[in-house]
Design a protein around this nucleic acid. Structure first.
Lengths: 344, 344
DNA sequence: CTGAAAGCGCTTACAG
DNA sequence: CTGAAAGCGCTTACAG
């Protein structure tokens, strides 16, 4: 039976109120009394029952983190960033791994986090208007990362611009047939990033007078396997691409494998650029558009703490973090001669 | 102001006790009463305050997962496995990211999870005798994964045997100078896996009459960078290795990069085998010793649920999961001629 | 500076 | 089948 606050009180010869005050460092406790309480607590190995504290205080000192698929590199990094600042501030972190379209709907319908957390960080999960309304009713502070919603603080990157720059990089190398590895255009989960990145890709092509070929826009599911399959698909085109913009490094790495298995040299025959700067990227020499993933989580954590402590006076903060092109060795100038020597 | 149980009670015209019983599906509630309560609860969008329930019930319905470094692939997979079975059983999952030797000591001294979780899953974190004693005092059910401790249920793999088989694979290809990418022998965190895998490696060498060269045993920190640096170090040896056994795929992938940057062909000049079967492994063609990471987490979750529900009669379960050699394209027979043709 | 008491929102014997 | 009441272990006005 672990010690309770009254055990400590009798051991120290004071009331439970005094124990509570002394242990939490509140003022108006005589130093000698405090010492006695501290000693008694140590002796009894006392720790306050958080459930009782929370019930009495009316807050949980817990933050919920809602992620679509927490095993993916991007999410783990982001969670780690937020976790660091939240635990440093004395908060517990509760994980909500919400996968699939139905999981998401169920989650937002039942909102199991109500009365359980003081606030939530929603990573990348798009929200329908009625879901936003319900969140507002629930009166739980929300911070989003990866998407921007009116009324909720957010941290994002400029996906349109970043994708445009990635595409420009390929165009600058002389490529004209550039495939896009993205999500399904009618993705039921309605993630925001693929939409914006496609937009940036298409804008870049158009601004250079290049044709936007739907046949070169293939869904890759943001995974290794998806990227591999998408690449295979793109290679089937009559006039195949000489370069690829993959909207995630995972897809890019999958694509590289497919290309090499098909006998294509990367970057000689095919240039590939990714997105994220996954920790593996430098080990496969992947050229990519880097985003500050951990920082995104950290900023989200900080924004949420602000909501919790400061009164949310004034306007809702939206932080946009910078991206950066990292050129490594999977992109190169387009070959002058496209056909193999012997095929003429 | 969210609805409380008494709001529901007055709405339904019954006592709070009846509401509590009806909502939790307890017997001895008239069907008509139950319906009325359910309706009232739905109308008011009622959800029970978990802190109050927990305080009254004396259990938290929360499981703590303690991981040394949760951004590493192995840990995320393992956590995901456990998380799935735990949330399916109605438990919340609280993350304890305990990094570094000091973080671990602090964590086990203060045991912040006491009174906060019903049980914990400890992944890979070695425990000192006094820490084990304290955990026993804390009376929190513990399940360990990756290490086996008397008295706690556990799920492990046979690291000695698996590492032996990995090494045998290289020996079978004719290699005699085989480097080991491992941890520091005097790793302050005292992780178990490196110790066992080194043991398996050395046994395999000895059983084939091969020399165990300390110069070929280099610390790689289980990371990409660590593996890359360790490889560079091993290549400096007077009589350099023709093969490498890396105790993690991350180290193996880092090592491949170093080797290729140094102008060595993998596997022609240097064979490399990893450990884990990281999702990237097949995309870099890495030969590796596969372990069922997600299953390890799932089994750990199941074992913990057993502890929580069934009385722990009889002996403590220790589950050992199988590993499997996966041969891909980073290992090959040792070259007959070691020196480049022109160097004779 | 300290204590007695109410209250946080539930659950659970106990009685009927 | 249902309700009144005690209790879970804290915190926080309120009084002194």
């Amino acid at each position: 039976m672990p010690a309770s606050i009254s055990d400590v009180a009798s051991e120290a010869g004071v009331s439970v109120a005094t124990v509570s005050r002394a242990l939490r460092g509140l003022p108006n406790v005589a130093p000698s009394t405090r010492d006695r309480v501290l000693l008694a607590a140590r002796d009894l190995d006392y720790i306050a029952d958080p459930n009782a504290s929370r019930l009495a205080e009316g807050r949980t000192k817990t933050i919920g983190m809602v992620v679509p698929l927490f095993t993916q590199w991007f999410f783990t990094q982001c969670v780690a960033g937020a976790e660091a600042v939240l635990t440093a501030a004395g908060y517990d972190v509760l994980l909500y791994n919400v996968s699939g379209a139905d999981g998401r709907v169920r989650f937002l319908e039942s909102m199991p986090f109500r009365k359980r957390v003081d606030g939530i960080i929603v990573i990348d999960l798009p929200l329908a208007v009625e879901e936003i309304a319900r969140l507002n009713e629930a009166a739980v502070p929300v911070v989003t990362v990866g998407l921007r919603i009116e009324g909720f603080p957010s941290v994002t990157i400029d996906n349109v611009t970043a994708a445009g720059q990635a595409t420009e990089h390929l165009i600058g190398l002389g490529h004209e047939r550039i495939a896009l590895l993205s999500n399904l255009p009618d993705d039921p989960l309605k993630f925001r990033a693929p939409v914006d990145r496609r937009e940036g890709y298409q804008r870049a092509l158009r601004s250079h007078g290049l044709h936007v070929d739907p046949l070169l826009d293939v869904p890759g599911n943001f995974s290794l396997e998806g990227g591999a399959e998408a690449m295979a698909h793109a290679l089937l085109a009559e006039d195949p691409p000489t370069a690829v913009f993959a909207e995630s490094d995972e897809m890019a790495i999958g694509a590289i494998k497919t290309a090499r298995d098909a006998g294509l040299a990367v970057p000689e025959d095919l240039s590939i650029i990714g997105f994220d700067d996954h920790e593996m990227a430098r080990y496969v020499g992947l050229t990519t558009m880097s985003q500050p993933v951990v920082a995104e989580g950290e900023v989200a954590g900080t924004l949420l703490l602000e909501q919790l402590t400061d009164p949310p006076q004034g306007k809702v903060p939206h932080v946009e973090l910078p991206t950066e092109l990292v050129v490594r060795s999977t992109t190169a100038p387009r070959r002058a001669v496209l056909k193999p020597v012997g095929s003429a």
